[in-house]
């Protein structure tokens, strides 16, 4: 039978842990609401943007803009979106497992998030940049990242750009997703936007080059922004769920330990009583 004092000490430490995880759960829940709102607010906009792009892509030829041009892929760039902090369940593990399946020799990585960066360093993969972002990033902050990727693509250093991030499905589910972004293809934007059969060519004002020059990079920047917001919502949801189950586990543990403690105490009392009675009987 375990020592009473040991059990008491363990109960106390488990209770402390439960208190901490409970607090973290509350914080994550508050942040999650904010992050989810931010991610959802942009959805109508990105849907319209996707639709515009799909119909645009059908009307202009591949050679119309460098961002539309698909080249044979020799080097590809992957933007790896992970979290800075741990304690968010299997979120990062799932993302990094996906990252590990990518071909090492032909893939270069750009990382946002410390977990991803340390994984890349540990496994000796090629990382060309690491960006730090706050909890709720602004469009300008993520634009720095997307601009970097865009320049790499335009300079010909890489032939494709994709984003690997935890897609927010709902609070309980986040799915690692690899989205090809550049060159911009109609498949990339499809899925959400309905297909519009226009037939006629688009008229551009002032001219096609000017409009494409503005729309296409903007589309890329905004999509990356939206994906990073999505990743943030995923992170907070995963953390909240992980912390909730940690708190529940700790509570279960406390219950078991308390039971054991009471049993041990009861046993001690019984032994003591027995001793007294035996002593009395011996004296009588």
């Amino acid at each position: 039978m375990a020592n009473l004092r040991d059990i008491r000490r363990r109960i106390k430490s488990v209770k402390n842990t439960a208190q901490i995880t409970k607090a973290m759960q509350m914080v994550a829940a508050a942040k999650m609401r904010k992050a989810q709102q931010a991610a959802l607010a942009g959805h109508p906009y990105s849907q319209v943007l996707d639709r515009v792009l799909v119909s645009l892509r059908d009307h202009v030829s591949e050679g119309a803009h460098p961002l539309l041009e698909s080249r044979p892929v020799k080097k590809s760039l992957v933007l790896l979106v992970t979290t800075d902090k741990g304690l968010c369940g299997a979120l990062n593990t799932n993302i990094l497992r996906e990252a590990a399946t990518l071909d090492q020799a032909s893939t270069v990585f750009v990382s946002s998030g410390k977990k991803g960066a340390s994984f890349l360093a540990r496994t000796g993969r090629k990382m060309i940049a690491d960006f730090a972002l706050p909890d709720s990033p602004t469009f300008l902050q993520t634009k720095a990242i997307s601009k970097f990727c865009l320049e790499k693509f335009l300079s010909g250093e890489v032939d494709s750009v994709s984003v690997l991030y935890p897609k927010f499905v709902n609070t309980l589910t986040q799915k690692p997703l690899l989205v090809p972004m550049l060159p911009i293809s109609s498949e990339a934007a499809q899925g959400k936007g309905e297909h519009v059969e226009g037939g006629a060519q688009y008229l551009f004002e002032p001219d096609a080059d000017g409009v494409l020059d503005a729309v296409l990079p903007y589309y890329f920047h905004f999509s990356v922004f939206q994906m990073i917001l999505d990743a943030r919502a995923s992170e907070q949801s995963a953390r909240m769920v992980a912390m909730k189950s940690a708190t529940d586990n700790a509570k279960g543990l406390v219950k078991d330990l308390t039971l054991e403690y009471n049993k041990a105490r009861q046993a001690a009392i019984t032994t003591e009583l027995l001793e007294i009675t035996t002593a009395q009987m011996a004296l009588a």
């Binding site: 688009y202 008229l203 004002e205 002032p206 000017g210």
Partner: peptide, 19 residues
């Protein structure tokens, strides 16, 4: 407010894309 000045759009306009 189009890039080339005010632009009025009525139904059945031809497909157009502008800033």
């Amino acid at each position: 407010p189009g890039a080339e000045g005010e632009l009025g759009i009525l139904p059945d306009h031809m497909p157009l894309m502008t800033q």
